[in-house]
């Protein structure tokens, strides 16, 4: 039984296939409106994430399927001490596929090891969130028309940002991709991520100055710099403004560069940027639903 726990489990050709199915769904939604008739998706969210859950549920409804959902983690049997393994076996009796969000890292993997139906990881703590990366990839494909020969800038918290690490590991597989890693010294990309890039010969540069690299970027992926990641408030106050994207900062960027963000944003992209045609973060949300549809179809073998 195939599950998707980590984006690295999907090969380049599988990602291409998901992207092309998602594009076909966008072009011909009626063709897919009854693909999942009689099928049920169980959304098991052991920590609140309303939007990811709604995205999965919207995806299943648009495929003609139904959704089983629990009211909250507090009302689930996990609160009575049931193990993830047992929950996975029980839900396998009711549903055809599971989307699981869990505060503990590795919980969806444990579910997948014990379920008799496919499990999609909808986020496990600060660890993996493969469908966010699929949303990012569809956005890149639709906006840039390719995955290769792109200069991809990541800005903000690159140390703890799981979406950043996942997108790097998905994009490093394409020819001619270069990464520009923009962060304060405290929040640089972990060494093991850089070692992987070195091993594969993927070029990257690290800098703390966004403006100096802005003109070369094809994609700017923004993330939130959280105050609690800093050792002292002085450093935070000194650095936080340099990682806030404003229309003025975008002046030196390419006219066809795209700005991405996994959302929710707090203040790292000023609202004035939303009107810029290069802003793609709300498109990412919509693309996330299409990729979840494509993934559900793939895992159900439809």
């Amino acid at each position: 039984m195939r599950s998707v726990i980590d984006i690295k489990e999907l090969s380049v050709s599988e990602i291409d296939e998901l992207v092309s199915v998602a594009k076909d769904i966008i072009a011909n939604p009626e063709k897919y409106a009854h693909k999942c008739d009689g099928k049920k998706l169980a959304t098991l969210f052991f920590e609140p994430s309303t939007r990811t859950r709604l995205s999965f549920e919207a995806a299943m409804y648009e495929l003609g399927g139904n959704v089983l959902s629990m009211a909250s983690a507090a009302s689930s049997s996990a609160s009575k001490g049931e193990s993830v393994a047992d929950t996975a076996q029980v839900i396998s009796c009711y549903a055809d596929i599971i989307a699981m969000r869990h505060p503990k890292e590795g919980a969806p993997m444990v579910a997948a090891m014990n379920a008799s139906i496919p499990v999609i990881n909808a986020g496990d703590g600060g660890h993996n969130h493969p469908t966010q990366t699929l949303a990012d990839l569809l956005t890149i494909s639709r906006e840039k028309g390719r995955f290769d020969n792109l200069t991809v800038g990541f800005c903000g918290d690159l140390k703890f940002g799981r979406t950043v690490h996942s997108l790097i590991s998905a994009m490093e597989r394409y020819e001619g991709v270069k990464f520009v890693l923009v962060s304060p010294d405290e929040l640089t990309v972990p060494d093991y991520v850089k070692r992987e890039l070195d091993k594969k010969g993927v070029p990257y540069v690290e800098t703390s100055d966004l403006m100096s690299v802005m003109p070369e970027l094809d994609i700017l992926y923004m993330t939130r710099v959280q105050q609690e990641r800093f050792f002292n408030e002085e450093d935070y106050l000194r650095l936080k403004d340099s990682y806030i994207l404003t229309p003025e900062k975008l002046e030196s960027a390419k006219s066809d560069m795209i700005v991405m963000h996994p959302l929710p944003r707090v203040n790292e992209i000023s609202v004035a940027v939303d009107r810029d045609p290069r802003a793609c973060y709300f498109k990412q949300v919509l693309n996330g639903k299409y990729m979840r549809m494509a993934l559900i179809l793939k895992l159900l073998g439809l």
Binding site: S83, V84, A85, H102, P103, K104, E105, G106, A107, M109, V110, D124, G125, G126, H127
Partner: peptide, 13 residues
């Protein structure tokens, strides 16, 4: 030793 790992709460794993 990761306190956020599933093995910390499900010790039979």
């Amino acid at each position: 030793h990761n306190p956020r790992c599933i093995t910390t709460t499900e010790q039979e794993l």
